[in-house]
Deep mutational scan, measured.
Amino acid sequence: PPDDERKKAEKAARSGNEEKAREILERLGYSEDEARELAKRLR
């Protein structure tokens, strides 16, 4: 489910793995720019 994926992205971002967070968010349908912004904010 998307919620689980989003949680994974948050966890990745918090542990400093912004790249992985961005990949997950892009898979969820965010654009590259949106995903980058979100990954930064989740950190």
Rank of each mutant, 00 (worst) to 15 (best):
P1S: 14
P2Q: 13
P2K: 12
P2H: 14
P2W: 14
P2S: 11
P2E: 14
D3V: 09
D3A: 10
D3F: 09
D3W: 12
D4K: 11
D4W: 12
D4F: 11
D4L: 13
E5M: 14
E5Y: 09
R6P: 03
R6H: 12
R6K: 08
K7L: 13
K7R: 14
K7D: 08
K8P: 04
K8L: 13
A9L: 05
A9Y: 06
A9W: 07
A9E: 03
A9T: 04
A9Q: 02
E10I: 15
E10S: 08
K11Y: 12
K11I: 15
K11E: 15
K11D: 15
K11P: 02
A12T: 05
A13R: 02
A13H: 03
A13V: 04
R14P: 02
R14W: 09
R14D: 03
R14E: 05
R14I: 10
S15E: 15
S15V: 07
G16I: 04
G16S: 05
G16R: 04
N17Y: 08
N17W: 11
N17K: 06
N17H: 09
N17E: 08
E18V: 14
E18H: 06
E18D: 07
E18I: 15
E19C: 14
E19Q: 12
K20E: 12
A21H: 03
A21V: 05
A21Y: 07
R22Q: 06
R22H: 03
E23R: 13
I24Q: 02
I24H: 04
I24W: 05
I24L: 07
L25R: 00
E26T: 11
E26A: 08
R27D: 03
R27Y: 06
R27P: 01
R27E: 04
R27L: 09
L28Q: 02
L28N: 02
L28S: 02
L28P: 00
G29N: 01
G29M: 01
G29Q: 00
G29K: 00
Y30Q: 00
Y30R: 01
S31D: 05
S31T: 12
S31R: 04
S31Q: 04
S31N: 08
E32Y: 11
E32F: 11
D33E: 13
D33Y: 10
D33G: 07
D33Q: 12
D33W: 09
E34V: 06
E34G: 03
E34F: 05
A35N: 01
R36G: 02
R36H: 04
E37T: 11
L38F: 07
L38V: 04
L38W: 06
L38K: 02
A39W: 03
A39S: 03
A39K: 00
A39L: 14
A39P: 00
K40W: 12
K40F: 09
K40H: 15
R41A: 07
L42K: 02
L42Q: 02
L42S: 02
L42T: 02
R43G: 06
R43Q: 06
R43H: 10
R43D: 01
